[in-house]
Design a protein around this nucleic acid. Sequence first.
RNA 1: GCGGGUGUGGCGGAAUUGGCAGACGCGCCAGACUUAGGAUCUGGUGUCCCCGACGUGCAGGUUCAACUCCUGUCACCCGCACCA
Length: 801
Amino acid sequence: MRYNFSETEKKWQKRWEDEKIFVADDSDKTKKKFYGLVEFPYPSGAGMHVGHIKAYSGLEVISRKRRMEGYNVLFPIGFDAFGLPTENYAIKTGIHPRKVTDDNIVRFTDQLKRVGFSFDWTRTIDTTQEDYYKWTQWIFLKMFENGLVFRDTALVNYCPHCKVVLSNEDSQGGKCDICHTDIVQKSKDVWYLRITEYADKLLQGLDTVDYLPNIKMQQVNWIGKSTGAFVNFKIANRDDSLRIYTTRPDTLFGVTFMVIAPEHPIIEKYRDSIKNIADLDAYKEECAKKTEFERTQLVKEKTGVKIDGLSAINPINNKEIPIYISDYVMMGYGTGAIMAVPAHDERDYDFAKKFGIDIIEVIKGGNIAEAAYAGDGEMVNSEFLNGLTNKKDSIAKVLEYLEEKGIGEKGVQYKMKDWAFNRQRYWGEPIPIVHCPVCGMVPVPYEELPLKLPEVSNFEPGEGGESPLAKIDSFVNCTCPKCGAPAKRETDTMPQWAGSSWYFLRYIDPHNDKAFADKEKLDYWMPVDWYNGGMEHVTRHMIYSRFWHQFLYDIGAVPMAEPYAKRTAQGLILGPDGDKMSKSKGNVVDPNNVVDEYGADVLRVYILFMGDYASAAPWSENSVKGCKRFLDRVAGMADMIKGEGVTPALESAFHKTIKKVTGDIEELKFNTAIAAMMTLTNEIYDNGGLTKDEMKIFVKLLCPFAPHLSEEIWEALGEKGFCSLAEWPTYDEAKTVDSMVEIAVQINGKLRGTLMIPAEISKDDALATVKNDEKIKPFIEGKTVIKEIFVPKKLVNLVVK
RNA sequence: GCGGGUGUGGCGGAAUUGGCAGACGCGCCAGACUUAGGAUCUGGUGUCCCCGACGUGCAGGUUCAACUCCUGUCACCCGCACCA
């Protein structure tokens, strides 16, 4: 069959859309369902690149297969369109972000449609539309109502280039996630979401879901739960104490000094009694100036200053110990103060060596003259703990003591911080809060949502880092919804991650104006059965959205705690040069060019054939041609049809291929599934043709990968309806096995030949056949066979001497 | 430093979990058809001192048999990073 791919592809895309065959149907709630989710794109000006296509192709194939297997399938797409790149572009060009966004969405939509994805386009969402962000604001207010939103003046991560406050997640490695400028610490009014309150639930929830192991691991590390103890150290000659957190309370007898973070409030509190306050101030200033880079580079070299005028009492033995300030203790973790046990902590050891502080061994097993010892061992120099050899026992015993004496207690800490949830920017969801001089922070009433973004002509943020909205008097000035007094609106907007934290719920009921989604529909479609996306979202979007969803579950708004039953990730597509694709390197492949030159089916097949779906692989134009050749050969098979029914020589090959393709798709092993179809194609050509029934099976297998060609052949075969909705082929296990198999014959483990024998042959018969084989005889003649190994359908190995 | 992962032909990658290493595709070589081929078809293609041996980062080990298991080691990639 000869076919013009560009015409054919357009023809089928139009038919699919006209006949609405990919529109998710939830009228029959008893039918089995499949909700496949891919991360919706940010519609940037650069358009999509082939990496986007790969990200969607995995679940595209799964979703198409599910439809053929008779499921109600929900496979939606939308646009995560609020955010800085669009706003920065608007500032640069003077074009309104609304227009920029709309134009980009049109372009992205066109690109996606040209690839022939089976998305349900009737459910498309755009996070910047009022009827969408109304519900983002609604969820925010629900969180506010439930005490999960608070405001604090804090040292925050601030990007001097973007003029915006960033969350920890958005400033990993000390760089702004958007422009990669070094972030600085700045004191600001910040809105927080109390995600730490959900830290344990986020951790425990992982036990109930099917995520790839490395995804779970990254989330566990990110949450960073540690168990230990809080201990109060008295400050000598003051009626006050210094509270610390430790994971090793069993080493309390080894404490020889304390260290507090440079920003620790106790310095201000006792300012007047600290004799070397000038030195401390100088040190503090030095620390504040250090960039993240300098701090990580200088990890080895400890710095600090001893506080002259304050000392502490170790509560376990009443010994007086000095207090130091040092930037190796962070204000943001634990209590900002530590007890230092130089004998058993590497950092404390370095510090003690540098400042000439005592080192007392309390756990045997190392050589503390040389290095800190963090391993297990017998307790010494520790009074009532002496002799214990197990960390668990000593910790239990010391905790008992601390609690009994009221000087400390068991405690838990997380690395995860509360989520800094505001941006001083225009292109985001306005935070629906009013500041009233009488009532304080007052939520905008639900019936007034959405709180719309006002029209603005200048999007430039203020020099002091205030939002462009602050300049709009008509937006800022309002009356308090509670008491009616003149009040001012919050002018910050939500971060980019807000809209994507619940979008998968909106797909379920995208046009509902009474609720974010209908309860019954949520019951039917949730949870997402399979979610695929990039590894870069594992510690941000994934954690954020799990948090929001667990909160919605707690207030009874969704039917289960965990939103995603299964999560996988695709690998990157690298440029032809093996480097990461980027505009600056000029190695970006535009999917439109590939579609124009080879067709959408070739693009789809190549992207899934190029390698392991989860691994990175470089683009290769030549391999694209190989896939084109394969599809041309498939088209050619339509001219090789001989009758109906089964071709005996191909029967087993067909059953094997159905089995292989069916199984491989479920494991995301698309490359080997395609390879199996290529192999079958070669066998069909070797055989000189196939029957019409076999051709039908073939195109059904191929349909999820190359749907346009499959539909075209399906139609040419005289079939009614769509191949995309045809029943997925089944196989007969008995027919996947051959009656004759080729086995390997080894002598002393070395391959000496192969032999065709019946598959169900007995061990004795197999050995007899092998020993009588002319090629094998010379190897055993005159020798003694001392061992005979027979693996059915695989090999015979004779050990001879 | 901690955590996770990966090392297989000229290239992308397979290998039913201990059983013929290199499926499938690219590239390359030879031939056919062609005025022509960057089209198509046929055959070949791990390496070498080529009737034999050697080969899955490297060095050992277990086994009749190891890409696969064990011990050690090297290299690269990705997270987190003074987390007390």
